[in-house]
Amino acid sequence: MKKSWPLWEVFVRSKNGLEHRHFGSLHAADAEMALENARDVYTRRNEGVSIWVVESKNITASNPSNNGELFEPAQDKVYRHPTFYKLPDEIKHM
């Protein structure tokens, strides 16, 4: 069976200090081509300082049906958020 160019996911860091964000996907035969294509497709308007490409098959995604057990427990652990703690207004820089 004829092999077609695999799908790659593209992540771009737009500025030093920021994280890489998912910009989209494209087809390429190999990693080198994927990088070059990503550069041509996703950074034409000065949008990037760094590109990551990952073959889509190498991405492990969480299953939304597990969202309950994966993500809900974090919802009620409000003590992880600074707003949980009430401090007198006089205290600055905290």
Partner: peptide
């Protein structure tokens, strides 16, 4: 031959 090469050659 592909959209991606089209974009590259145009660049």
């Amino acid at each position: 031959p592909s959209l991606e090469t089209d974009i590259a050659c145009t660049n």
